[in-house]
């Protein structure tokens, strides 16, 4: 249990899709090593390709995948993440860049939860900002909502402008 907690998700791993991919890659490597153990020496075997994301999680957690324990640790961690990691759905007005997502994930992993996963959505009509949806709640942090909240301020300005215009008309 203690080992599981020591493992960390890199900020490049954003959503559940990434975790699933890591799990598939780990399964492929595990299968490869298991098959290698039972095959006769001299037969050719094709090493499964791993993604940059997989390399990152391995290097970040200082794992040696040759060791079955490390592979088991990583597999348990990934399965546990798939099952129980907290998830957030965040919608933006445009598709976010990888750098933007990295910085955001950095903040979320640091301040909200170290295992939090994010599903990115797209809502072009929000203007700016984002809409965050957690398990039970929705946080509209968009510019549209900000305008709605500050509607009275806008109305006051409009009324002031109307009064100003009517005064100018009277003067004219």
């Amino acid at each position: 249990m203690e080992h599981k907690q020591t493992l960390q998700l890199p900020v490049s791993v954003v959503g559940i899709t990434d975790v699933n991919r890591l799990d598939r890659e780990l399964v492929a490597i595990d299968e490869f090593l298991r098959q290698g153990a039972i095959r006769e020496p001299g037969t050719t075997m094709k090493l499964p390709k791993t993604s940059k994301l997989f390399d990152e999680i391995v290097s970040m957690n200082d794992l040696n995948l040759i060791q079955e324990d490390d592979r088991n640790r990583l597999r348990d961690f990934l399965r546990d993440t798939q099952d129980s990691a907290p998830r957030l759905h965040i919608s933006f007005s445009t598709d976010p860049s990888p750098l933007f997502l990295q910085r955001l994930m950095n903040y979320l992993r640091e301040k909200i939860n170290p295992r939090v996963l994010v599903q990115v959505g797209l809502q072009p009509n929000i203007g700016a900002g984002c809409v965050v949806r957690s398990t039970n709640k929705v946080f509209d942090l968009s510019l549209r909502e900000d305008f709605r909240k500050k509607r009275r301020v806008l109305m006051q300005y409009i009324q002031k402008l109307e009064v100003h215009d009517s005064k100018q008309e009277v003067k004219a």
Binding site: S93, L99, G129, F139
Partner: peptide
Amino acid sequence: LNDQLDYIIADIEANKEVIIQDLS
């Protein structure tokens, strides 16, 4: 969107406790 990051993080920070509570 990159220019909005600080604004977004500030907004999330303002609602951080509620989000953490809801996730937990």
